[in-house]
Design a protein around this nucleic acid. Sequence first.
DNA 1: TAAATATCCGACTAAATTTGTCCGATGACT
DNA 2: AGTCATCGGACAAATTTAGTCGGATATTTA
Lengths: 143, 143
Amino acid sequence: MILSTKGRYGLKAMFELGLQYGNGPIPLKIIAERQNIPENYLEQLIAILRKAGLVKSVRGAQGGYLMQRSPEEVTVGQVLLALEGPMAPAECVADPEAPKCKLASGCVTRGVWEKINNSIHNVIDTMTLQNMIEDQVSSIEKE
Amino acid sequence: MILSTKGRYGLKAMFELGLQYGNGPIPLKIIAERQNIPENYLEQLIAILRKAGLVKSVRGAQGGYLMQRSPEEVTVGQVLLALEGPMAPAECVADPEAPKCKLASGCVTRGVWEKINNSIHNVIDTMTLQNMIEDQVSSIEKE
DNA sequence: TAAATATCCGACTAAATTTGTCCGATGACT
DNA sequence: AGTCATCGGACAAATTTAGTCGGATATTTA
């Protein structure tokens, strides 16, 4: 079930933007180098994040990207939602509007999907980019 | 991130086999009808489950499939692992043998993937097919 | 003003995965 | 012998993944 590179690269890129928060724009090239992501591909991913309102851009020389909101206000879940779609095991638990399974016997797997969905969202909707940054700092201190 | 039909169909099929446990083999056709799964496709999926040691088969007339072990002994995680591969957000937390991310800065997302991985496995590795069956029974009683 | 920097936009593509379908062979029961 | 049912492999359309590339646009700097 491994996530695609969209989500994996994208979260790394958002982490770099979070580190830089408050210090003006950072160009894509730097992010791509630091996180070892193909620059041209990252360009597509950051466009998605921009359209999702998580990132804003400054064009031209000395330009680059910045977080739209502060790292405390952005959760891992918001980033993954933009890039991977709903982080749910099945449509029926991803979207409250989703059509109910139309089996006469009732859906026998829905309970499982709900439990998985809740456990995932319990993590990704509470963890912010700020938390990621703090975790990183404290893990470096330990060395 | 929605799971593929492999996992979704496969778990429904295993549920049917669990219901039938102890009563001899049940043909694929019946399972496909009850759970509204294309029979020819389910044939492929059940072959995977058979090779994973979760299901055994009886050929010929009055044949069909049965669970290899009892529903108490089979977890949702085992079924999903066979059909979807590791239920982890990233390779590095799916497999302890996986090569470490080789970034000088260290992997900044690993902590997130570990938390997600743990929360998923906390659900799928403790929930058995027997649990699913019991949940289904009690939800029917409520009506 | 020209050059350099950097985003923006869309087109393109190879490869893999998904979601099946189909068919013939094999084995077992009646 | 006939029927039921699994077994195995081939085939394929559609989608997704994981990029690559080129040119247009905007901004700063020299």
